[in-house]
Write a protein that binds this DNA or RNA. Structure first.
Length: 849
RNA sequence: GCCCGAGUGGCGGAACUGGUAUACGCGCACGACUUAAAAUCGUGUCUCGUAAGGGAUGUGGGUUCGACUCCCACCUCGGGCACCA
C-alpha cells in the first residue's frame, strides 16, 4: 500500500510528544499568555461517541496555532465526576462510586489520548479528589462567611456586618434578602442570643440554610433539580433518569444567594465575546423587569395589599385585586372573610395538585372571591373586590396583583369567566389581546388623559406613594443534595442548633468511605445514616454537581498548590480564560454559576477579573446518520475508536472540522469521511514533488493566500473553510511541476493544528529535529497575496455577459472603455443608448441600457 | 403564546462590507491504468432548451444599476422561556 500507515505513525508520535513534553505549559510568566479551555467532561460509563471530541478538536486546533504563534498556552483537561449519574451508575453496577469514577476516567483518557489532543496532562484536575474539593469547600466557606452590600454593589465579609450591627443595629444596613427584615438597635443586637444572632445573619449570608419545596423522587430517594425532571405524556413530573414519579416536598436545604448578583450578572454580559444567542438565554433567565410597588389598603382593617406592576399607568383600569393562594394575608384576614372555610377548601385543593397542573399551558384560570373584604384603589379611592386565584404566583413580585382586565390578557380571561368589570384606560390595542404590551395614550383616567403610558407610570407611582422597584425571575440556587456522592458541606451543627464552619486547617472534610451509600429513603442524605459522621455533628447534605465545576478553570492555573486554590502569581498571570469551548446546554447552569462564583471571588480580592470567560464558542452537536441524537437507545452511536482505527486520528480531526460550521449541529456521514482521508493521503504523496528548486509563482501565490485564509479562519473558528482552502492548495500542488521544500514546509505548518501526526512525520522526514508544533507559525507575504491582474465581470442590466482581465492599476475610465469594446458585449450595446455604467473596483462593470 | 436562530444542487456546505450563486468535499456517470477488482488519476455533474437564451438561494412583495445578503408579510424547522403581572 502506497498510503501511509496511520497506526504506526500516530503511536510513534504520541510517544515522542509525551517523552519530550511537547505540550507542557511554561512556568515562565514573561511570555504572553493564552488560556484555551474545554468544558471538562462528566466521565459517564458509556464512554465517548464521535460527537464529544468535536469541541475538543476545535479548541485544540486553536491552541496549537496559538502555541506556534509564540503564546504560552494553557490548554488543560480534567474531570467533573461528582453527582447523581456516577452514583446511579455505581448503584447499578454494585460498585463504589469512587471505583466507578476511576474506571470511567480511564476509559475517557484512553479515548481522548488517541485523538492527539495537545493537553498538558500534568495539570489534570478531578473534582472528586480531596486535594481538589478541599478548595471547593474553602470557597463555600468564603461564600458562607459573606453578605452582599447593595450600597457598595459587592460582597463583604460577614464579620463586617456583625460589627455594623454591633455599632448601629440594622437600621441602616441594606437588606440583601427578600424576606422581611427585622429591625433592631445595636443595644438589642447585643442582647440577642447566639442562636438569634445566627438567625439574623442567615438572612444575609450568601450561602444560607433554609427550607424549600423540592422535587422529591421517592424511588430514587433523592431530590432532583428542575433540569433533571421532565413531563411524561400525561403531564406528570418524572425523573429524566429512570422515569420515576416526582412530587413536591418541603426539605431543609442550603442555598446560594445568586439573586444578589442578578444585576451584575446581567450587566456583565454586555462586554463578553459570546454568541448573542447564549447571552439572550441568560438575560431571559435573569428576567429583569422594572415596575412599581403600590399598596392597596383593605377597607376597615389595618392591613394592606402590596402589588407589583410594570404598568402603573393602568391603575385606573384596575377592577379587582388578586392574591396568590399562598399569600399570608389570606390567613391574617380570616376573621373578616365571610366565606373563609370555602376559601380554605379551595386553597388546599390547589396544594394537592401537582404544580405542573397549575402552570400548564392554556390552563383555565380559576379563583374565589374573599367575601367581606374590599381593597381601596389608592389612585381614585374606588373599592375593589379581593380574590385568590391560581394564576397569581406567590414567588414572583409581591404575590399579589391589581387586575386590569382591559389591558392584560390573563386578567381579561379571568374577568370574563367571573364576570368582573372591564375598564379601558389606555387607547389602542385589541382589548382581548396583547393590549398590555401596547403602549399608548391614557384615556378615561381623569387628569392623566392624553399623557403617554411611559410618563404616566412615573406620575401615578408618585401620586399613590408607590416606589419604583426592580424584580428578577431568577431564584436563589439550591446548594444541597441529599446524596452521598458529592462534596461534604464543611459545617457542624450542635445540639442547640448552632452552626460552626470548619476551620481551614480541618479541610478537606473528606467524604467518609462507607460500604452502603444508598439513600435513606426518608429524603435525608445517606450521610445521615453514618454514625461517626452524625456524632461529629457534620452537615449531612452534600454539595450539588455544579459546585466543583464553578471554579475549576481557576485551579488549572496552579493545580498542585496545597496552600491556596491557586497562587497569587499564577492568578495574576493567567487572569481569565481567553477562549472557552463547550456545549450551549450549560447556558443557564454552569455558565451562570461560574460567573457568579467568579464575581464573588473578585469582590473578595482573590482574583483579578470579574468575568471568567472572555470568549465563548459553542460547538454544534454531531447527530447520527439518521439525523437523530446519538444514543444507545437508538443504536446509532458511532465510536471514535473505530474511526481512529480505520482512518486514523488525523482523518477524524480533519473530517470533524471540515463537516460544516463549528457551531452548527450536523449529521455524521460515513460516506463523506473518506474525502478527509484522501486529502491526508494526497498530502503524504506530495512529498515526491519536493525539490530544492523554487516553486512556480502561481504556487507561491496560492500558498500565501492560503496561509492568510487559514490564519484568519482559525482565529474565527471557521475551520471548515480553512480546510477547504488547503484542499485547493493541494489540488494546485498536485498539478505543479515541483514544490520548493521551503513552501511545502510552510504548508505543513498551517496543516499541523488539524493533522498533527502526519505533518510531524513528514516534517521530521524532511530533516527537522524540533517538533513542527514548536515551530513558528508562517507569515503570509503581502506582495504574494495581491494579484497584479484581476478578472472583471461585465454585466448588462445586471446580467453577466462577459469578463475581461485587466491590470490591477487600470483606471476606471480605461476599464469601462475595454468593457464596452468587448466582443461578447457588443450585441447587447449595439444600437441602444447606454444610460449609465457602474464600476466596482476590481470586480464588476454593469452597463445599464 | 412570547423571545432568539436557520431555510442554497442528490447530500454536508461556500459566497468579503449588496457585486460571477453553487467554492471545497461526498455521491453519481463516463474514461484511463488493470486479466479482473480495489486503490489512484482524468472529464462531467443546479435546471429547462438542439442552440441562442431563460429560470432557480422556503413563499409572496419591496428597495437597488445589481439582493442568498437589506426592508415588509407569510410558511417550515431548530432552540430558549412559559400564567413573571
Amino acid at each position: 500500500m502506497k498510503n501511509y500507515d496511520h497506526k504506526k505513525i500516530e503511536k510513534k508520535w504520541h510517544g515522542e510528544w509525551g517523552k519530550n513534553e511537547t505540550y507542557k505549559t511554561l512556568n515562565n510568566t514573561k511570555t504572553k499568555k493564552m488560556y484555551v479551555l474545554d468544558m471538562f467532561p462528566y466521565p459517564s460509563g458509556a464512554g465517548l461517541h464521535v460527537g464529544h471530541p468535536r469541541g475538543y478538536i476545535g479548541s485544540d486546533v486553536y491552541a496549537r496555532m496559538k502555541r506556534m504563534e509564540g503564546y504560552n498556552v494553557l490548554h488543560p483537561m480534567g474531570y467533573d465526576a461528582f453527582g447523581l449519574p456516577a452514583e446511579q451508575y455505581a448503584l447499578q453496577h454494585k460498585i463504589h462510586p469512587r471505583k466507578a469514577v476511576d474506571e470511567n476516567v480511564k476509559t475517557f483518557e484512553r479515548q481522548l489520548s488517541i485523538i492527539g489532543l495537545s493537553y498538558d496532562w500534568s495539570r489534570k484536575v478531578n473534582t472528586t479528589d480531596p486535594k481538589y474539593y478541599k478548595w471547593t469547600q474553602w470557597i463555600f466557606l468564603q461564600i458562607y462567611n459573606s453578605w452582599f452590600d447593595i450600597s457598595k454593589d459587592k460582597a463583604r465579609s460577614i464579620k463586617e456586618l456583625e460589627s455594623i450591627f454591633e455599632k448601629s443595629g440594622n437600621l441602616k444596613v441594606n437588606a440583601a434578602c427578600d424576606s422581611e427584615t427585622n429591625f433592631f438597635t445595636s443595644k438589642e443586637w447585643k442582647l440577642f442570643s447566639k442562636k438569634e444572632k445566627q438567625d439574623v445573619l442567615m438572612k444575609y449570608r450568601l450561602a444560607y440554610e433554609g427550607y424549600s419545596e423540592v422535587n422529591w423522587c421517592k424511588e430514587m430517594g433523592t431530590v432532583l433539580a428542575n433540569d433533571e425532571i421532565i413531563n411524561d405524556e400525561n403531564g406528570n413530573l418524572i425523573s429524566e433518569r429512570g422515569c420515576y414519579r416526582v412530587e413536591k416536598k418541603l426539605m431543609r436545604q442550603w442555598f446560594m444567594r445568586i439573586t444578589a448578583y442578578a444585576d451584575r450578572l446581567l450587566v456583565g454580559l454586555d462586554n463578553l465575546d459570546w454568541s448573542e444567542h447564549i447571552k439572550e438565554i441568560q438575560r431571559n433567565w435573569i428576567g429583569k423587569s422594572e415596575g412599581s410597588e403600590i399598596e392597596f389598603k383593605i377597607k376597615n382593617t389595618d392591613e394592606k395589599i402590596k402589588v407589583f406592576t410594570t404598568r402603573a399607568d393602568t391603575i385606573f383600569g384596575a377592577t379587582y385585586v388578586v392574591l396568590a393562594p399562598e399569600h399570608g394575608l389570606v390567613q391574617k384576614l380570616k376573621s373578616y372573610i365571610h366565606n373563609f372555610e370555602e376559601v380554605e377548601g379551595y386553597i388546599s385543593s390547589l396544594k394537592n395538585k401537582p404544580e405542573e397542573d397549575r402552570t400548564k399551558d392554556n390552563k383555565e384560570k380559576n379563583g374565589m372571591e374573599l367575601n367581606g373584604v374590599r381593597a381601596i384603589n389608592p389612585a381614585n379611592g374606588e373599592e375593589l373586590p379581593i380574590w385568590v386565584a391560581d394564576y397569581v404566583l406567590s414567588n414572583y413580585g409581591t404575590g399579589a396583583v391589581m387586575a386590569v382586565p382591559a389591558h392584560d390578557e390573563r386578567d381579561y380571561l379571568f374577568a370574563v369567566k367571573y364576570n368582573q368589570e372591564i375598564k379601558e384606560v389606555v387607547s389602542g390595542g385589541d382589548i382581548s389581546k396583547k393590549a398590555f404590551t401596547e403602549y399608548g395614550v391614557l384615556i378615561n383616567s381623569g387628569k392623566f388623559d392624553g399623557m403617554t403610558s411611559e410618563d404616566a407610570k412615573k406620575e401615578i407611582t408618585k401620586l399613590v406613594l408607590g416606589k419604583t422597584v426592580v424584580k428578577y425571575k431568577m431564584r436563589d440556587a439550591i446548594f444541597a443534595r441529599q446524596r452521598y456522592w458529592g462534596e461534604p458541606i464543611p459545617l457542624k451543627h450542635d445540639s442547640k442548633g448552632i452552626i460552626t464552619p470548619l476551620l481551614d486547617k480541618y479541610l478537606p472534610l473528606e467524604l467518609p468511605n462507607v460500604k452502603s451509600y444508598e439513600s435513606m429513603g426518608t429524603g435525608e442524605s445517606p450521610l445521615a445514616g453514618v454514625k461517626s459522621w452524625v456524632k461529629e455533628g457534620y452537615e449531612t447534605n452534600t454539595m450539588p454537581g455544579w459546585a466543583g465545576s464553578s471554579w475549576y478553570f481557576l485551579r488549572y492555573m496552579d493545580p498542585l498548590n496545597s496552600k491556596q486554590f491557586a497562587s497569587r502569581k499564577a492568578i495574576d498571570y493567567w487572569k481569565d480564560v481567553d477562549v472557552y469551548v463547550g456545549g450551549q446546554e450549560h447556558a443557564t447552569g454552569h455558565l451562570l454559576y461560574s460567573r457568579f462564583w467568579n464575581n464573588f471571588l473578585y469582590d473578595m480580592g482573590y482574583i483579578k477579573n470579574q468575568e471568567p470567560f472572555k470568549k465563548l464558542k459553542n460547538q454544534g452537536m454531531i447527530l447520527a446518520t439518521d439525523g437523530r441524537k446519538m444514543s444507545k437507545r437508538w443504536g446509532n452511536v458511532i465510536n471514535p475508536d473505530d474511526i481512529v482505527s480505520n482512518y486514523g486520528a488525523d482523518t477524524l480531526r480533519v473530517y470533524e472540522m471540515f463537516m460544516g460550521p463549528f457551531e452548527q449541529s450536523l449529521p455524521w456521514s460515513t460516506e463523506s469521511i473518506i474525502g478527509s482521508r484522501r486529502f491526508i493521503d494526497r498530502v503524504y504523496r506530495l512529498k515526491e514533488k519536493i525539490t530544492d528548486k523554487k516553486s512556480s509563482i502561481n504556487i507561491e501565490k496560492v500558498l500565501h493566500k492560503t496561509i492568510k485564509k487559514v490564519t484568519l479562519d482559525i482565529e474565527s473558528f471557521s475551520f471548515n473553510t480553512s480546510i477547504s482552502s488547503m484542499m485547493i492548495l493541494v489540488n494546485e500542488m498536485e498539478v505543479a511541476m515541483n514544490i520548493s521544500i521551503k513552501d511545502f514546509k510552510m504548508f505543513l505548518q498551517i496543516l499541523a493544528p488539524f493533522a498533527p501526526h502526519i505533518t510531524e512525520e513528514i516534517w521530521s522526514k524532511l530533516g527537522e529535529k524540533k517538533s513542527i508544533h514548536k515551530s513558528s507559525w508562517p507569515k503570509w507575504d503581502k506582495m504574494k497575496v495581491i494579484d497584479d491582474e484581476v478578472k472583471i465581470i461585465i454585466q448588462v442590466n445586471g446580467k453577466v455577459r462577459g469578463e475581461i482581465v485587466v491590470g490591477v492599476e487600470t483606471s476606471e475610465e480605461e476599464v469601462k472603455k475595454i468593457a464596452l469594446c468587448n466582443l461578447s458585449i457588443l450585441p447587447w450595446v449595439l444600437n441602444v443608448e447606454v444610460k449609465r455604467i457602474v464600476y466596482v473596483k476590481g470586480r464588476i462593470v454593469n452597463i445599464v441600457v
